[in-house]
């Protein structure tokens, strides 16, 4: 498909899904009213006829949630594409560099051991303790894996992959241990976090998250050319004038930053980072200078739709978003896999 057409469709999709997403829910607000409301709000126009209850729902609850979905989706999509590029492996995803496992372990630890270890901190940070903990956990694990994989000052990608698997397993075991010891209430919280949710969105969290996602999303596409060269192997990329070590460090740092900050607020959302770049490549080709920004956009769109489904399908009960992404993502991924077996064989 034409790249411009793809971009147009995805952006149109985001606008449409956004309006739907803001409108649909326990209280339904017609799309026209949503559009007017947002339009007026943006332009600062005072509308006397506006439904104040609707306005409150849109501005305080649904809009931040939409934005969190867009940011987290963009972060997962673009990081997924970048990590696949740097690892030269289409099955790689941000989880490989330990971000998800580290965030999970830290989050579960915060929930499970809150009363024991983090009582003081909890008072101080309140709700944000969980987010901070998860972000710290993501960063620390990524750092450990990165340092293990370093050989003579440069990260070795194969070692990194293997170290990632080992550290992920270790973090998973510790997470399991804490889960096993958790109380009934803690268990619910843990499960909820591990399956992901956009429920924690507030304007404060959005503003805190914004730079962590925006900076990587803007900067990563500049590594697109370098990641193309990476597909020939690191050595050949070097021969083509790419500063291989710098690119690796930059991509790993930016991806960790984006995904770590996103999952710290949303919990684990599986399959987006893996699936989105694949769909993009099938549609517009494999050139990373386009795959990267397009993955950010498609990721944003997918997560918005997933959240919409999670909130509405058995309303008023809200399903974990990770369940939806996996439920939709896994069959789609399998479908692509079976249809394009040959193309995917490396």
């Amino acid at each position: 498909m034409n790249k411009k057409l793809f971009y147009t469709l995805v952006i149109a999709g985001i606008v449409l899904a956004g309006i739907l997403s803001v409108g649909l829910g326990a209280v339904s607000i017609p799309p026209v009213e949503v559009a007017t409301l947002l339009f007026n709000k943006m332009l600062g126009v005072k509308d006397d006829q506006a439904n104040l209850q609707h306005e409150a729902i849109v501005i305080i609850v649904r809009l931040p949630r939409l934005l969190l979905g867009l940011l987290a989706g963009a972060a997962l999509g673009i990081s997924g594409a970048s990590i696949q590029g740097i690892f030269r492996n289409p099955l790689a995803e941000p989880g490989l560099i330990g971000v998800s496992a580290g965030a999970s372990l830290a989050a579960v630890a915060v929930i499970g051991l809150e009363g024991v270890l983090f009582a003081g901190l909890s008072n101080l940070l309140g709700y944000y303790l969980l987010a901070f903990g998860a972000f710290a956990g993501a960063g620390v694990t990524a750092l450990i894996i990165y340092n293990i994989s370093k050989h003579e000052g440069r990260p070795n990608i194969t070692t990194m992959l293997l170290a990632g698997i080992a550290i992920n397993a270790l973090a998973g075991a510790l997470t399991g241990l804490i889960t096993y010891l958790a109380s009934e209430q803690q268990l619910r919280n843990i499960t909820f976090w591990l399956l992901g949710s956009l429920g924690g969105a507030t304007w404060q969290t959005i503003i805190a998250l914004l730079p962590f996602v925006l900076i990587p999303t803007i900067l990563l596409p500049f590594s697109g050319k370098a990641l193309n060269a990476f597909s020939l192997g690191e050595a050949q990329a070097g021969y083509l004038g790419i500063d291989v070590d710098k690119v690796k460090k930059r991509v790993i740092l930016l991806s960790t930053m984006a995904v770590g900050s996103a999952v710290s607020l949303t919990g684990i959302i599986s399959f987006v980072g893996l699936l989105v770049p694949h769909i993009v490549r099938l549609v517009i080709g494999v050139d990373n200078t386009h795959v990267l920004p397009a993955s950010a956009l498609l990721g944003a769109l997918m997560l918005t739709i997933a959240d919409l489904i999670a909130r509405t399908i058995i309303a008023p009960i809200e399903l974990p978003i990770g369940v939806i992404t996996a439920l939709i993502g896994a069959p789609v991924f399998l479908y692509i896999l079976i249809r394009d077996k040959r193309k995917l064989i490396i």
Binding site: P90, G233, A235, Q236, R281, V286, K343, I346
Partner: peptide
Amino acid sequence: VLNQQNNVSLPF
């Protein structure tokens, strides 16, 4: 440089 092996990881 032309390498002995030229694995390309993506279908360019």
